[in-house]
Amino acid sequence: MNHLKSNDPKSMYFQSYDRVLNALWPTQFSSYFLETSYGNTYIIESGDLLSPPLLLLHGAKMSSTMWYPNVAEWSKQYRVICVDILGDKNKSNLEKQFSNRLSYATWLNELLESLQIDKTNIVGLSYGALHTVNFLTFFPHKVNKAVIMSPAATYIPLNREFYSYAMGLISNEVGVKNFLKWIFNDRHTVNSLIQQQLIDGMQWNTESSTQKVRQAFPYIFTDDELAQIQTQLLLLLGEKEVMYDPLEAFNRAKNSSPHITIEIIKGVGHLMSMEKPVQVNKRVLSFLNN
């Protein structure tokens, strides 16, 4: 058996991940891997197995641990299944490269089949929101309702400033702190354990973080693709969004799909689920339950 050294970058990242999960996760959970044709996917699950399923797809580099401010409320009514997106920085293990948008959607569909879930609700933020819309274009019959928060690209391109901060993010601890400062300004202070997980993740250079795995993303969906989405869809944009102009995204998304509802949340930025969890938790539940 191959044992990792305690100071190995991968081991240090996994330890940071586990510290967040064990210290901040507010409710009982189970965690496990599901095998797919693209690799083993790590899942954190909370809530009653008999409750309606709710799939959560995290932002890039954040992993499923980012949902700790939201899972307690949502798991009271739903079987919450947090997915570590294959190919991103988390505990999932990519074994076969994704080649296009369909391959990403196929991986997600394989997860639902393994879970024996015929239809689910999905909540995605940023990169996870991009995955959500992508999944809707290929497997719409698998989704009941979807909430997309601060979608990465999707409707309009990310601005140049994002790429400058993203390059700093991957370089060192200072880059991570500067990135978080840019995202939140002075509105919110990230939990120190979450910050350390990000730092350790950036210091763990994995093959899955190379450009190869991102052949399909970021992606701007065409008018025709968006018009064909029949799913009930809630798009939440932050008033203080810095990755792109939220008003421009609002105008592009407006009437783009037959059953889309769009709201700009006052006083929050890109990571709104962490910044104002009480407000976001309530809005998501009201949409899913009505």
Score class of each variant (00 low, 15 high):
residue 228 Q to Y: 02
residue 252 R to A: 09
residue 37 S to M: 08
residue 204 W to D: 05
residue 177 K to W: 09
residue 253 A to P: 10
residue 103 S to L: 03
residue 264 I to F: 06
residue 166 A to S: 13
residue 113 E to K: 09
residue 259 H to C: 11
residue 181 K to T: 12
residue 161 E to M: 10
residue 17 Y to T: 00
residue 213 V to Q: 13
residue 256 S to Y: 12
residue 281 N to G: 02
residue 84 D to Q: 08
residue 102 L to S: 08
residue 184 F to M: 09
residue 198 L to H: 04
residue 208 S to R: 03
residue 39 G to L: 11
residue 99 S to W: 05
residue 99 S to T: 13
residue 81 I to L: 05
residue 177 K to S: 07
residue 274 M to K: 06
residue 199 I to L: 14
residue 21 L to D: 01
residue 160 R to C: 01
residue 18 D to C: 09
residue 36 T to N: 07
residue 216 A to Q: 03
residue 245 D to E: 09
residue 74 W to I: 05
residue 90 N to K: 00
residue 83 V to I: 15
residue 6 S to D: 12
residue 13 Y to H: 13
residue 222 T to H: 09
residue 5 K to M: 09
residue 52 P to I: 07
residue 280 V to D: 07
residue 146 A to I: 03
residue 108 L to K: 05
residue 179 F to K: 08
residue 204 W to G: 04
residue 261 T to A: 07
residue 126 S to P: 03
residue 177 K to V: 09
residue 78 Y to C: 07
residue 62 M to L: 11
residue 173 E to S: 14
residue 183 I to E: 04
residue 214 R to E: 08
residue 86 L to A: 06
residue 165 Y to T: 00
residue 290 N to E: 11
residue 174 V to K: 14
residue 269 G to L: 12
residue 276 K to N: 14
residue 54 L to Y: 11
residue 20 V to W: 02
residue 31 S to H: 13
residue 6 S to H: 12
residue 43 I to L: 14
residue 264 I to Y: 05
residue 230 Q to A: 13
residue 246 P to M: 05
residue 64 S to Q: 05
residue 138 F to Q: 04
residue 223 D to V: 05
residue 37 S to Q: 12
residue 49 L to I: 03
residue 72 A to C: 04
residue 152 A to S: 12
residue 188 H to M: 12
residue 227 A to H: 11
residue 115 L to I: 00
residue 79 R to H: 11
residue 116 Q to V: 08
residue 1 M to R: 06
residue 212 K to N: 13
residue 260 I to F: 10
residue 83 V to N: 03
residue 120 T to I: 10
residue 50 L to W: 01
residue 247 L to I: 13
residue 161 E to G: 07
residue 89 K to R: 15
residue 135 F to I: 11
residue 177 K to I: 10
residue 170 I to V: 10
residue 38 Y to D: 02
residue 23 A to H: 14
residue 45 E to D: 03
residue 17 Y to C: 02
residue 24 L to S: 07
residue 215 Q to S: 14
residue 286 S to G: 04
residue 286 S to T: 12
residue 203 Q to E: 09
residue 20 V to T: 00
residue 234 L to N: 03
residue 141 H to C: 02
residue 6 S to A: 11
residue 78 Y to N: 11
residue 203 Q to A: 08
residue 106 T to Q: 12
residue 31 S to K: 15
residue 20 V to E: 01
residue 278 V to W: 00
residue 149 M to Q: 08
residue 73 E to W: 03
residue 147 V to A: 10
residue 85 I to D: 01
residue 217 F to D: 00
residue 160 R to Q: 11
residue 79 R to M: 08
residue 161 E to W: 11
residue 220 I to R: 03
residue 186 D to K: 15
residue 266 K to T: 07
residue 137 T to Q: 09
residue 60 A to Y: 07
residue 238 G to V: 05
residue 257 S to V: 08
residue 56 L to G: 04
residue 114 S to A: 15
residue 5 K to F: 04
residue 53 P to Q: 06
residue 263 E to I: 13
residue 78 Y to S: 05
residue 198 L to M: 14
residue 175 G to F: 11
residue 235 L to E: 03
residue 164 S to R: 13
residue 270 H to M: 13
residue 77 Q to K: 15
residue 173 E to I: 08
residue 80 V to W: 12
